[in-house]
């Protein structure tokens, strides 16, 4: 399993306040745009059937983007003291996500949520000070890749 790493530091605006162009379904360049947006450091890990681009920020947010061999992001995960900007991360899938959330109709304080649509799964949970979750495109997960890897 070859591991290469690259470092990238840049600045625009925070990912969680929007501004960059990376998202689920985006390309590798979009990951670097995310890192720039996050004031983050990225390092890449090449695995058998995909690459993991991890972005770490001083504020404690970590976003991992899973890039398939065709160069597109098929999954991403996050941990941090606040939720990342879901509009930013989900890109064109954001509308489906919010519509599904609104349709949940589960009142009360709830600490984990799972949205499972035919083309999109979002799992999000946690509490103040510690949120985590992931989103993936089920049809785009490479053959032989276990969902448990996508964290």
């Amino acid at each position: 399993m070859a591991v290469r790493s690259m470092l990238c530091v840049a600045a625009v605006a925070l990912l969680w306040s929007g501004g960059a162009s990376a998202h689920l379904d985006g390309d590798v360049a979009s990951v670097q745009a995310d890192a720039a947006a996050l004031y983050g450091l990225t390092h890449a890990t090449a695995l058998l059937s995909y690459d993991v681009q991890q972005i770490d920020t001083a504020a404690g947010l970590t976003v991992r983007e899973f890039v398939a061999r065709d160069g597109t992001v098929f999954a991403l995960s996050w941990t941090g003291p606040v939720l990342p900007d879901m509009r930013q991360l989900l890109g064109q899938h954001f509308g489906d996500y919010t519509a599904a959330l609104a349709a949940l109709d589960q009142p009360g304080l709830r600490r984990s949520v799972r949205i499972a649509l035919p083309g999109l799964v979002v799992e999000s949970g946690g509490h103040l000070r510690a949120y985590s979750g992931r989103a993936y495109l089920p049809a785009r997960v490479p053959d032989g890749v276990s969902l448990s890897e996508l964290r």
Binding site: R111, S112, E123, R134
Partner: peptide
Amino acid sequence: AGGAGSSNFI
């Protein structure tokens, strides 16, 4: 109980 997909144990 619930929580399919959760990455925590609550």
